[in-house]
Simulated assay, not measured.
Amino acid sequence: MTGWWCENSLRRALENLLSNALKYGNDAPVSVHVEAVLERLIVTVHNGGSAIAPEQAECIFDYLRRENDNPAPGWGIGLPFVQNVAESHGGSIAVDNAPETGTSFIFDVPVDCRPFVQPADVPKSDN
């Protein structure tokens, strides 16, 4: 697939999703599915580990959010970074989560993000 993205940001976002799947997946298999659908890149990272509690799922993208009962190391900046990368590319990140099936993160961005990039020499609008 050929696309127009910020290579470093996209790589770091996907690395974060993969490392989280391994870290929180309770040694369950991790799968990655990549597809192009209607001029969009959709990457799904799934682990079959314990589901995210409903009360935690609402705030997992909050900056510096960490659950006290989770022994996995981290600062609470990974998922907010992933969300920022997706949105700055004109896309989104979503989570699908159930005790029976595990957790999937769906990273969805346009194949061509150039219309969403602010040129470096043009100030951002206040609107």
Rank of each mutant, 00 (worst) to 15 (best):
E15A: 08
G102E: 01
G76C: 03
A28C: 06
L14R: 12
A86C: 10
S88E: 04
C113S: 08
F61Y: 14
P80M: 02
T103G: 07
L22I: 06
E100T: 04
P80L: 03
H46M: 03
F81C: 05
M1D: 06
P71G: 11
A51V: 01
V43G: 01
I77Q: 01
P115C: 10
A98F: 10
L10R: 03
A120R: 09
V117G: 03
W75Q: 15
N8F: 03
H46Y: 05
L14M: 14
E67P: 03
A57R: 15
N16Y: 00
D62R: 14
R114C: 01
S31D: 15
Y24E: 07
A98K: 15
S31I: 06
A13F: 03
T2A: 13
E67S: 11
E15S: 15
E58M: 11
P54C: 04
S19A: 08
D121N: 11
L79N: 05
D27F: 10
F81Q: 05
A13P: 12
E67Q: 08
I93C: 12
P99I: 01
C59H: 14
T2Y: 07
Q56M: 12
D112L: 12
A94G: 13
P110T: 02
Y24H: 09
F105Y: 13
V43E: 05
D96Y: 10
G3Y: 05
A86L: 00
C6D: 13
F107N: 13
H33I: 06
G76T: 09
N84D: 07
N70K: 10
A51N: 07
I42V: 11
P110W: 00
Q83D: 12
W75T: 15
V111E: 03
H33D: 10
